[in-house]
Structure formats: structure tokens, C-alpha cells
């Protein structure tokens, strides 16, 4: 059994693209770099499939921070990245309206060997959440 505060550690959901960011997250493991355990990487073909409410529901359910790790402009699906970026801005607005700190949702690009970018994003989000939550 774990100390009670353990359960309180804020949870970070990472939506990682199958083509780039997910292998990027694997790469972090391959080089045995460590990052906090409160991170849950979920593989998606293209995060553009999530509507605005999906993100808001995640926060309602208790996810503390979401990092959308996309392929950026190397996205294999035409037009998807720009649509995603627009959608995330829209979610930021909706978060603002609901009083959810907007920096709890991040969109970034992580490539298959971008272990540094991955770690930076995770640490930043972790810091933000542990210092404010």
C-alpha cells in the first residue's frame, strides 16, 4: 500500500501520435531517461479526431494536465495539424470560460527521436501541476 498522498499526484494524459510522438516516447525509454510516473501515454493515429468536449471531459474526470504530442508539420494526414491547432486554441478558450488554467493543455510536436522535447514537456507540465494543484 502506498502513502495516501501518492494517489493525489496529478495525472498527466499524453495523446501521442502513432507516427511520431509515440515512437518518440519509446525512444525516451530506450535511452533509459526517467520522468515522473504520473504520465500516461495513449497512442492515437491523429489527435484531430478528438472534439472539444473530449478534452473538457478529461479535466472533469480528474486528468490534471493533457499534452497533445503531434507530428507537427510532418503529420501524415493532410490538413490535420492545422485543424488540430485551431481546435486546441478553441479548447483553450473554453477552458478559460470554465476557469480551468489553460496551460494545463499543451500542444507540441515530438518526433521519433525527440527525447529531449518529450522530457521537457513532461517536466514542465509536472512542475506546473505540482506547484499549483
Amino acid at each position: 500500500m502506498l502513502p495516501a498522498d501518492r494517489a493525489q499526484v496529478p495525472k498527466i494524459l499524453i495523446l501521442a501520435t502513432e507516427a511520431c510522438a509515440y515512437p518518440g516516447a519509446d525512444n525516451v525509454g530506450q535511452i533509459h531517461a526517467e520522468y515522473p510516473a504520473n504520465t500516461y501515454v495513449v497512442r492515437v493515429p491523429a489527435p484531430v479526431m478528438f472534439s472539444e468536449p473530449f478534452y473538457l471531459h478529461c479535466f472533469e474526470k480528474g486528468i490534471a494536465g493533457i499534452i497533445v504530442m503531434s507530428c507537427g508539420h510532418e503529420c501524415p494526414y493532410p490538413g490535420a495539424y492545422d485543424t488540430l491547432a485551431t481546435r486546441i486554441s478553441r479548447v483553450h478558450e473554453l477552458m478559460g470560460e470554465r476557469g480551468i488554467q489553460t496551460n494545463r493543455l499543451r500542444l507540441c510536436a515530438v518526433c521519433t527521436v525527440c527525447s529531449k522535447a518529450f522530457l521537457k514537456e513532461v517536466h514542465q507540465m509536472h512542475e506546473l501541476l505540482t506547484s499549483t494543484v
Partner: peptide, 21 residues
């Protein structure tokens, strides 16, 4: 479910955390 690259290999110093994850 990926519990090697994304759990054990990146969570060596926190086995409890890794197990929970």
C-alpha cells in the same frame, strides 16, 4: 499495453510509481 519503454525503462528509480502506472 506498453509497460517496458514507457514504464519500466523510464521509471527505474520509482518502482512503486512504475507499478501503479
Amino acid at each position: 499495453v506498453n509497460i517496458r519503454e514507457q514504464v519500466s525503462w523510464c521509471g527505474k528509480s520509482d518502482p512503486d510509481g512504475a507499478t501503479n502506472k
